[in-house]
Amino acid sequence: MTITTLSSRAFQQNANQAQKATQSGPVFITNRGKPAHVLLSYEDYLRLKGTRRSLVEALSMPGLEDIELEISPSRELPRPADFS
């Protein structure tokens, strides 16, 4: 994977070049020297978007039943809510 970096001015002048560069990796577009945007191919976007899992899916992964969760009791008493 190749990462291409373009200034916002270079991106505006060479949008075709930036689009072609996404075939080999992401294109970082900078504003005043700092990364401001990332241009991805549609395939890369779909791949990244597809990696999201719901909380239920994450908690139902195989092997999690073997992990012990130790929660120490809190020493502070809960404070009543202030609705004023």
Rank of each mutant, 00 (worst) to 15 (best):
G63F: 08
A36W: 06
M61A: 11
T22G: 04
S41T: 11
A81L: 11
N14G: 08
A18W: 08
G63A: 03
Q12M: 12
E57W: 04
R79C: 03
Q17E: 15
H37L: 14
R79M: 12
I29H: 05
R75E: 15
L6C: 11
T30V: 00
T4R: 10
F11N: 01
A36Y: 07
S54F: 05
P62I: 12
R9G: 07
A36C: 03
I67D: 15
L77G: 06
I3L: 12
M61I: 00
G63M: 05
E43V: 08
I67F: 15
L46E: 13
F11Y: 11
K20T: 14
L6Y: 05
H37N: 09
Y42D: 00
K20Y: 12
N16C: 12
V56G: 07
L39A: 09
Q23C: 03
V27Y: 10
P35G: 03
N14V: 03
A36K: 11
A21L: 01
A15T: 15
Q17A: 14
F28S: 02
G63D: 00
E68W: 03
F83L: 10
T51I: 08
T5S: 07
N14Y: 06
S54C: 10
G63V: 02
L48E: 07
K34D: 08
E70A: 06
L6V: 13
Q17S: 10
I71L: 06
I67V: 15
Y45M: 04
A15F: 08
S8V: 04
E70N: 11
P62K: 15
S54A: 11
P35C: 08
T30M: 01
N16R: 14
A58S: 14
L69P: 02
L77A: 05
S54T: 15
S41Q: 05
D44I: 02
Y45S: 04
P26Q: 06
E57F: 01
L48G: 15
S72G: 09
L46M: 13
F28Y: 07
R52K: 07
F83H: 08
R79S: 09
I67S: 09
G50N: 13
G33K: 01
Y45V: 01
L48M: 08
S84F: 10
G63Y: 06
L64Q: 13
T2D: 02
M1E: 02
S7W: 02
A18P: 12
L48N: 08
R53I: 13
D82Q: 07
T5E: 11
E70F: 10
E57Y: 02
N16Q: 15
A81V: 12
Q23D: 14
A58Y: 11
R32V: 00
E70V: 14
Q12T: 06
I67H: 10
Q12L: 10
A15W: 12
K20P: 03
N31L: 12
G25S: 07
L64C: 12
L46V: 14
